[in-house]
Simulated scan of single mutants.
Amino acid sequence: MSPNDLSRFQHRRRVALAILIAAVLVALLFVQSALPASGNHHGYIEAIGFGLIFVAILGRTWCTLYIGGRKSAEIVSEGPYSVTRNPLYVFSTIGAAGVGALSGSVTIAAAFAVLTWASFHYVTLVEEDYLKRTFGEPYLRYLGQVPRFFPNLRLFRDSEMLTVRPKNIYNTFADGLVFLAAYPFFEVVEYLQHSGVVPVLLRVY
């Protein structure tokens, strides 16, 4: 796979992901948490969701300090990349779980996390094939030492110095804020459901 092929694949992936997200959001119009919106448990789950989203935003920004502008150009193996080969995807999955939790449902939060992990799993396989061909033995050693997804914190090691591109940091931070757009979405959905405008076809805990 050439760099151009990888770029086209990433573009198709983003389009497919956007379509999937749109379909999920439409489906969520008819799904409601079985926990009362005014109850404590519903509020606790929402609070956890916000916490997960902020972890995701900060984590993705942290990753960009190390990978910004260097992805697919060199092997980055320090900071978050020393404990997992795909920390951006890890934090995005955490953010997806947070988005689902804003619905007040643990089931929806878990479903969002699993769907996000599954979509990224295929992407990582394609990227790994490209990186194997590009970097050869050095990447194979990295691949054998650091887990693909679930972090191994015992492997953590850091750099003494980083070269930072502020624009990449700002862009990643701004992209992460999109997770917070889920809150007004779920509030509107909740209002439409309680007012009877949208029928509730499924209730989940």
Rank of each mutant, 00 (worst) to 15 (best):
N4G: 12
N4V: 12
D5T: 15
R8G: 10
F9L: 13
Q10E: 13
H11A: 14
H11Y: 09
H11V: 11
R12F: 14
A16E: 15
L17E: 11
A18R: 10
A18M: 07
I21W: 05
A22F: 00
V24K: 01
L25H: 11
L25E: 12
L29F: 15
V31K: 15
S33T: 12
A34V: 03
L35N: 01
P36E: 13
S38Y: 02
N40E: 09
H42S: 13
H42Y: 15
G43R: 14
A47G: 14
I48W: 11
F50V: 05
L52K: 01
V55K: 00
V55G: 02
A56I: 09
G59M: 08
R60V: 10
W62L: 14
Y66E: 07
G68T: 09
R70D: 00
K71N: 12
S72E: 15
A73G: 00
A73E: 07
I75T: 10
V76H: 02
E78K: 02
G79F: 07
Y81E: 11
S82M: 00
V83A: 02
T84V: 08
R85T: 03
R85K: 10
P87I: 07
V90W: 14
F91M: 11
G95Q: 07
G95T: 04
G95L: 03
A96M: 15
A96G: 15
A101V: 04
L102F: 07
S105F: 07
S105D: 06
I108A: 06
I108N: 07
A110E: 00
A111T: 12
A113D: 13
V114G: 03
L115G: 13
F120C: 09
Y122K: 06
L125G: 11
L125F: 05
V126H: 03
E128D: 12
D129G: 13
L131Q: 07
K132C: 11
K132S: 11
R133W: 00
R133D: 01
F135E: 13
Y139I: 02
L140F: 04
R141Q: 09
Y142R: 01
Y142P: 00
L143E: 12
L143N: 11
Q145R: 15
V146E: 00
P147Y: 11
P151N: 08
L155V: 01
F156H: 14
R157G: 03
S159K: 14
E160M: 10
E160G: 14
M161E: 15
M161L: 08
T163S: 11
T163G: 04
T163D: 14
V164W: 03
V164I: 14
V164A: 07
R165W: 06
R165N: 10
K167V: 11
N168L: 01
I169A: 06
Y170T: 09
T172L: 05
D175L: 08
L177G: 12
V178Y: 13
A182G: 15
F186I: 06
F186D: 01
E187K: 00
V188L: 13
Y191I: 02
V200R: 05
L201A: 09
V204L: 15
V204M: 08
